[in-house]
C-alpha cells in the first residue's frame, strides 16, 4: 500500500514524527495510525533510526575551544597595533632623515635600499601566499 492509498503523505508522516503538525492534523494521523499496521511499522522504524542516530551524537566529545578562540579573536587587534605603530615610527623616522642636512646622494642611496627591501619583501610574501593557496598538501600533518 503506498502513501496515496493510505491517505497520508510522506511529508505528513515526517511532520507527525517530528511533532510539526497542527493538533487537528495530528489527530487525523493518529486515527489513521490506529487502523494501519503498515503505518505503525514505518513510524516505529523511523523512531528507532532516530534513537540510533542520537546515540552517535552522545559519543562526540565537545572540546573546550574558548582559550584558543580567544587568542584568534584578539590577535588581529595586536597585529593592527603593531603594524600601525611600525608604520608611524618608520614614517616619522624617514621624514626626519630626508628633511635633515644629510648629503643628497646618501639620501638617494638610503631611499633605494629601503624601497628595494620593501619590494623584495612584498614580492616574496606574495609568492609564498600564492604557493600556499595551491599547495595540495597544506592540510597534511607531518
Amino acid at each position: 500500500m503506498n502513501s496515496m492509498e493510505r491517505r497520508i503523505t510522506n511529508e505528513e508522516l515526517m511532520k507527525f514524527l517530528d511533532q510539526e503538525l497542527a493538533p487537528d492534523d495530528r489527530a487525523r494521523i493518529e486515527r489513521e495510525l490506529a487502523t494501519s499496521t503498515e503505518l505503525q511499522r514505518d513510524l516505529a522504524r523511523y523512531r528507532h533510526l532516530r534513537a540510533d542516530l542520537r546515540s552517535l551524537g552522545a559519543d562526540i566529545e565537545a572540546p573546550d575551544m574558548w582559550s584558543s578562540l580567544h587568542r584568534k579573536l584578539t590577535r588581529p587587534v595586536g597585529w593592527l597595533l603593531l603594524v600601525a605603530g611600525a608604520l608611524l615610527w618608520t614614517g616619522w623616522g624617514s621624514w626626519l632623515y630626508f628633511t635633515s642636512d644629510e648629503d643628497l646622494i646618501m639620501k638617494f642611496a638610503m631611499g633605494g635600499i629601503t624601497i628595494g627591501f620593501v619590494l623584495l619583501l612584498a614580492g616574496t610574501l606574495h609568492e609564498r601566499w600564492i604557493e600556499w593557496q595551491s599547495d595540495p598538501y597544506r592540510d597534511i600533518e607531518r
Partner: peptide, 8 residues
C-alpha cells in the same frame, strides 16, 4: 518535510 523523508 519532503527533504527529510528522502534523506531518511
Amino acid at each position: 518535510a519532503s527533504r527529510l523523508f528522502h534523506a531518511r
